Simulated assay, not measured.
Amino acid sequence: MGLSKLFIALFVFQVLFPCHMSIQAAPANSNLFREYIGAEFNNVRFTDLPINSDVEFHFILSFAIDYETSGSPSPTNGKFNVFWDSDNLSPSQVSAIKSRNSNVKVALSLGGDSVGDGYAYFHPSSVDSWVSNAVSSLTDIIQEYNLDGIDIDYEHFQADPDTFAECIGRLITTLKKNGVISFASIAPFDDDDVQSHYKALWKSYGNLIDYVNFQFYAYDQGTTVSQFMNYFNTQSSNYNGGKVLVSFISDGSGGLSPQNGFFTACSRLKSQNKLHGIFVWSADDSKRNGFRYEKQSQALLASSH
């Protein structure tokens, strides 16, 4: 085929079949910093944290859980209640920190590891009833607290992956469509059961998920920089096209710690245009060291812009 005919054929193919020619652009470096706050009731406040004006800063309230708040909590089929330290992280304090810092947004995280003395399970009675209850109860909380987004951090499941995907996918779809939230994230980690649920969600609704808060600190303590880079590449493949954020845990109990090369790994990712953001678990623990590594994280993120 002559060169001119080849160009014409390609042009016609693109016109007739444009969807087959579209390629999702890979996410690039970002100045996004996110921090979970309020789960451990350590009297930490938004104002305790250093906020670099040159980053996009997300606080993530931990947690809203669809369980009763009684002494022996039980599942409520999507009727969410506040389980974070609402005395120190109240609606008025959310409004105050956002009004003082134009780069700050505040989200809430759903689920978490535990409630009371047991695990917090994802346990819907049915897709329709769970979604209806979740949309209603979360809309009330989000509007009361003047929040911007949600994070999905269920870690234990009494439902199959397809049910989880449909419930969470429809929840995010509805909250975004109603203008209740402007972003959504998920927080998986490297566990077969956890990954099966989140990958099902990603497969069906990944286009609605803005950030992947992958819990890299759930890997073994003493993770090396090279291992971390491999883990990052693996999870970027699992959540293909997603903004996979890197992370560390404040108490150093797992993963690649700031003392052992976390920021070296971040710099390498930044040089590869793959540093989509950093998040930390959690402000409650970081309070002890004066948020030293939060400052370092934000400085590194800000330097790329």
Rank of each mutant, 00 (worst) to 15 (best):
G261F: 07
Q296G: 00
L10E: 14
E294N: 12
G242N: 06
E294L: 04
E56C: 01
S4A: 13
I181Y: 04
H276R: 14
Y219R: 10
Y211H: 13
L171I: 12
D113V: 08
G252A: 02
Q158P: 03
K203Y: 06
S4N: 11
I186S: 06
W84K: 06
R292D: 12
N52H: 08
K177E: 13
Y119Q: 15
C19A: 13
F63M: 08
I172S: 08
I152G: 09
G118V: 09
K5H: 14
A120R: 08
I37S: 02
I150G: 08
G290N: 12
S30F: 10
Y219M: 06
P91V: 01
F63I: 11
N101E: 05
A184C: 09
E294D: 14
N178C: 05
S102M: 03
G261H: 04
Y239M: 04
Y67V: 09
L110P: 05
N178G: 03
P258V: 02
K199Q: 13
V225E: 05
V55W: 10
A159Y: 01
D251T: 15
M21V: 04
H58Q: 15
Q298E: 15
Q235M: 15
T76P: 06
S109H: 03
I142G: 01
S226E: 14
L147W: 05
S74A: 11
V104R: 04
D148R: 00
Y145A: 04
L300M: 11
H123P: 00
L245Y: 10
K5C: 07
F164W: 04
F228I: 09
Y293D: 14
V131N: 07
N238P: 00
S132A: 14
S247D: 11
V225T: 11
G38W: 03
G206W: 05
A28C: 09
L301V: 13
P18S: 03
F279N: 12
V135N: 07
Y205S: 05
G254C: 00
Q296T: 12
S62A: 15
H197T: 11
N133P: 13
P188Y: 04
A165S: 14
V55M: 06
V244G: 07
S53W: 02
Y121R: 09
G71Q: 15
P161Y: 07
H58S: 10
F157R: 11
L301D: 14
N230V: 05
S304L: 12
K274R: 15
G261N: 08
N52D: 14
G78K: 03
A9T: 12
